[in-house]
Design a protein around this nucleic acid. Structure first.
Lengths: 212, 212
DNA sequence: GCGTATTATGAGCGATTACTCGTGTTTGAC
DNA sequence: GTCAAACACGAGTAATCGCTCATAATACGC
């Protein structure tokens, strides 16, 4: 298990770049559909329309594919959230608006490919290299949230760092549960709105918005 | 995979009952330590101090062990929560006290064997029989919470059923994240207390307990 | 066109898995 | 003590896994 996880060779020709991307794309699909154990390297290669030998020319082992996917996931997620984070930093929005934006963005992020997300974040055993890359997201999210909350005077909590961690954890937990176990009888948007209200009341108990 | 999941034979002698229990106990340990894929039937049998043949005399396949564990988990969890639920029903406590009891009980439940809990609830593919048994807990929790909240006048939310689902999901999500990814710098009790405060402010925004 | 570096191939290897089955041991009714 | 039923055993099987390697096809500088 303690093996190199980076691609074995740098693609020199456009052809190989395509092969590499095909494998990654197929990996995302197969991990998404069958989970970690069910995603065999032969299946991924077949799905990519590529021989098993080619797969192992670009990835030293199965876990390396997961790590590459995690990197892509982190990168795409960061790019997706970048404008939001920048806007928050430049001009911290009121807590109510900010929470709605935040929850909405998180739901979007999860709805994309929930199963792959779960394989990445929760299925085990997870290589250490993967763990490290995934922790980055959460830490950045907590820091950004804390910075934002610190710029808002309407926030009334004892420990802003703890509050930021709890906000991130709550959004993560609720959206996760929502996407993985969708409930009949309620629309996802209902959950998202109610989660934003929940966090608003926690962070700003003086901003009392009474129930319908 | 679509195979019978119940034990093959009823134990007639005390000896076999012990074997059965040893296998279940070993299964809990091995699933806890190595996850679904890493828990091989041979390993479970070895851990139980029992031959692989004996294992397959009581469980038709690997998944059947998981299902039996889920059943035991549900039963033990229910027994553990029964006095709390009964007390809530007989004399609904104020929201603040109730939340602290609830969060505390959930943390206890998760802290027991978090990895097994994760294997049971999240690792895939999950046999349908297992899924059904697990959904029971959540439904019961939501119903009990809703009933409790309906008996309290200080609760101020638009939709009590939605609120109950959100409360359960939040407690579940936070305790889950807390147990699985313990954070340095904060004690678990800090999280539990803050989570109770979060939910209190959500459910009862008029009960303003200021920070610090 | 030629030669070399790069890329692609897939049969097959060793290891591991869930699971079977023929055999031996223990138990309890009589 | 006898004997059948219940229980325990573990070497072995077929299937599947991640992965290797000898070989073939392709691309590009010249």
């Amino acid at each position: 298990m303690a093996q190199p996880l980076n691609p074995l060779k740098e693609p020199k020709q456009a052809r190989s770049r395509e092969t590499y991307e095909a494998i990654l794309g197929a990996g995302a699909q197969v991990f998404e559909r069958r989970g970690y154990a069910g995603a065999t390297t032969n299946r991924i290669a077949e799905r990519a329309g590529v021989s098993i030998g080619s797969l192992y020319q670009y990835f030293p082992n199965k876990d390396a594919i997961l790590v590459a996917l995690a990197e892509r996931h982190v990168r795409q997620g960061s790019e997706h959230l970048a404008p939001l984070v920048a806007a928050f930093a430049a001009n911290p929005p009121p807590v109510r608006e900010g929470l709605e934006l935040l929850v909405g963005a998180m739901v979007e992020l999860h709805a994309d490919s929930p199963r792959l997300h779960r394989v990445l974040f929760e299925e085990c055993p997870r290589p250490a290299a993967l763990q490290e890359r995934l922790d980055v997201i959460q830490r950045i999210a907590v820091e950004a949230t804390e910075a934002w909350l610190s710029g808002r005077t309407e926030v009334d909590v004892a420990d802003r760092h703890l509050a930021a961690e709890l906000v991130v954890q709550t959004v993560e937990g609720v959206t996760h549960g929502l996407v993985i176990h969708p409930r009949p009888g309620h629309k996802p948007t209902d959950y998202a709105a109610e989660t934003a209200l929940l966090l608003l009341r926690y962070l700003c108990p003086s901003v009392w918005r009474s129930a319908g």
